[in-house]
């Protein structure tokens, strides 16, 4: 059921990162829908306990449980899971040691609280452990339960640490169960079955952060995926007009005639308005130029890149499907 014609055909774990507020949760949700469409089964995972998935799909808060939350275009199911490190630890203790009550007692003592405070690496290994378990899980027929898992991951600044769990945990636990567990995670995360995608805007800081993030990932031997350029404004003006505007040679004369023809203004008023609008055009042209420069910087990373439109009315369910459709037509899924 793989579709070999998409850019990430062999990938089973899609990790979505990016600067804060650029649209990680939105892109992860849309990507899950896009990957599921055509009858596949996809799990969308969130790890920061913020209930971003529930919000975006307009659902009550998700429990620590995989449940179906949406149907993809032309069939296919999206399941969601909000990973709570505490619950993940209980599950882990029970699964590996059959120690449910001891696990409970430790939780009461605040061990998870402790782990998140002093050694986030421990917490990360629980969370990535649960995620990669879902990736590896097979049904009775020996086939994978999920065709793909999409992870709404921590922001760019923390992603390499988050995924590089073996490294993170190595300093803390040189031997022992945590170390072993982290190696299992590592096997999935560093394999060709994983791709780490970056969400960015066409602005200086998010682009810079994306490039730094990609470099950091590569240095850590982690697989960089694609770049999702989010909230792209469609350009309304012809390139020729933008070019003259950038050079400061945009002529308001044509606008005067147009405004008169449309009956918007007359005489001196039309001239003043045309000049004001011309100023707006120049500003817009400058911004477009800057965006072009940001695109060029992104291109240097040498990754596949996809552009997602700025949805004028914000992101609702219909908007998510629109973004998913856009991803499919661009070959991201």
């Amino acid at each position: 059921m793989d579709s070999p014609d998409t850019d990430w055909a062999g990938v089973r774990l899609h990790v979505v990162t990016g600067k804060g507020g650029t649209g990680k949760t939105t892109v992860a949700a849309a990507l899950a829908l896009a990957l599921a469409s055509g009858g596949r089964k996809v799990l969308l995972v969130e790890v920061e306990g913020r209930q971003g998935i529930a919000q975006i799909f307009d659902l009550p808060p998700l429990p620590y449980e995989e449940r179906k939350i949406a149907v993809a275009p032309s069939g296919g199911d999206v399941f969601a899971l909000s990973i709570d490190p505490e619950a993940a630890m209980l599950e882990y203790m029970e699964m590996f040691y059959g120690m449910r009550s001891a696990g409970r007692a430790l939780t009461k003592m605040g061990i998870v609280d402790f782990a998140t405070t002093v050694a986030p690496g421990f917490r990360d290994v629980l969370v990535t452990g649960k995620t990669t378990e879902a990736v590896r899980r097979r049904g009775r027929n020996g086939r994978r339960i999920y065709d793909a898992v999409v992870l709404d991951a921590p922001p760019t600044g923390r992603i390499a640490r988050f995924l590089n769990v073996t490294q993170e945990v190595a300093g803390l636990a040189k031997v022992g169960p945590i170390k072993n567990h982290s190696e299992l995670v590592n096997n999935v995360v560093k394999s060709p079955e994983t791709a780490v995608h970056f969400v960015t805007l066409l602005e200086e800081m998010p682009v810079q952060e994306t490039l730094d993030g990609i470099a950091e990932l590569r240095a850590a031997g982690l697989p960089a995926g694609g770049i999702f350029v989010n909230m792209v404004r469609e350009s309304l003006l012809p390139q020729a007009a933008l070019d003259t505007a950038v050079k400061g040679r945009f002529d308001a004369g044509e606008l005067v005639l147009g405004l008169k023809a449309a009956g918007v203004a007359d005489g001196a008023e039309a001239t003043a308005m045309a000049e004001a609008l011309a100023e707006e055009v120049v500003e817009h042209a400058h911004r477009t130029e800057l965006e072009k420069a940001e695109r060029a910087s992104l291109a240097e990373a040498g990754l596949k890149s996809y552009e997602l439109p700025l949805l004028a009315d914000g992101v609702d369910l219909a908007g998510l499907y629109e973004l998913a459709e856009s991803m499919r037509t661009q070959g991201a899924a």
């Binding site: 630890m89 007692a105 430790l106 945590i178």
Partner: peptide, 14 residues
């Protein structure tokens, strides 16, 4: 019990 569980979970060195 607790110490046992912790040691299993984290390892003695930790």
């Amino acid at each position: 019990l607790m110490a046992g569980a912790m040691t299993k979970l984290l390892g003695a060195q930790v």
